[in-house]
């Protein structure tokens, strides 16, 4: 699988793994039973099929038991999924280190970084197109907006994904754990250029990030 570069990437992968195990068990059991029955009860000369209604207790238990056990598995999956969901989507860290704004439009991403003073909507904000710069091990809150149609902000290595809706500002958060340069994708169809709406996220260590802020501030001060 692709690298895990955010604090919650591993927990999302673990839910996926949990589901894979539980569901995989049933899948293999059901398919195994299925093919075994096909082989075991293949037509044989002179052997007539059995007449079963399906409500005789000794056969019906083969349906009722699995069916309740599936329900039990569902409960485990729900608990796992909701926990992760709560952590990723339903809360915002109250000790976030910085806020950034992400704006989608046909067909590019504009990223508004807080700049040297670490406050958004001040004079030293850094605007970039299709390049997002963040510092490793810092918690970011993002405000996601759109200027025209729906877009969707997705960073696969973070496992995060969120639709951008015109007229709204949707909040979310992430904390990178690994430096590097990765894909940002637009994953909601947004017109002809949807296929080229790619951006890059640059996860830098403190030194690199400070350097970048310095160079960008002189270059593109707005």
């Amino acid at each position: 699988m692709i690298p895990q570069a955010s604090t919650y990437a591993a927990s999302i992968d673990n839910v996926i793994l949990l589901i894979a195990v539980l569901v995989g068990f049933w899948f293999i059991a059901a398919e195994g039973m299925f093919f075994w029955l096909i082989w075991r009860f293949r037509a044989k000369e002179g052997v007539k099929s059995e007449y079963l209604e399906g409500h005789e207790p000794h056969v019906k238990k083969w349906i009722t038991w699995p069916h309740s056990l599936v329900l039990v598995c569902d409960v485990f999956i729900i608990i796992g999924a909701v926990q992760v969901w709560y952590n990723v989507k339903q809360r915002l860290p109250d000790d976030a280190d910085a806020t950034i704004r992400i704006i989608g439009q046909q067909w590019a991403w504009t990223f508004q970084h807080p700049g040297a003073d670490n406050d958004l909507d001040t004079a030293d904000d850094i605007f970039t197109v299709d390049d997002l710069h963040v510092e490793v091990d810092r918690t970011y809150i993002f405000q996601l907006q759109s200027r025209d149609v729906l877009h969707s902000f997705s960073v696969p290595v973070f496992r995060i994904k969120q639709d951008a809706i015109p007229g709204r500002s949707i909040m979310g958060w992430f904390e990178p754990t690994q430096t590097g340069e990765y894909d940002v994708q637009c994953v909601e169809i947004c017109g002809i250029g949807h296929g080229v709406m790619a951006a890059r996220i640059h996860i830098e260590d403190a030194q690199q990030h400070a350097d970048w802020i310095r160079s960008a501030s002189t270059g593109t001060a707005q």
């Binding site: 899948f27 999924a81 997705s154 994904k161």
Partner: peptide, 17 residues
């Protein structure tokens, strides 16, 4: 069974679309 991965909100964050 693959629908279950998508129905679990936590996993769908990654799998959606």
């Amino acid at each position: 069974v693959t629908g279950i991965f998508l129905g679990a909100s936590g996993a769908d964050i990654y799998f959606h679309d």
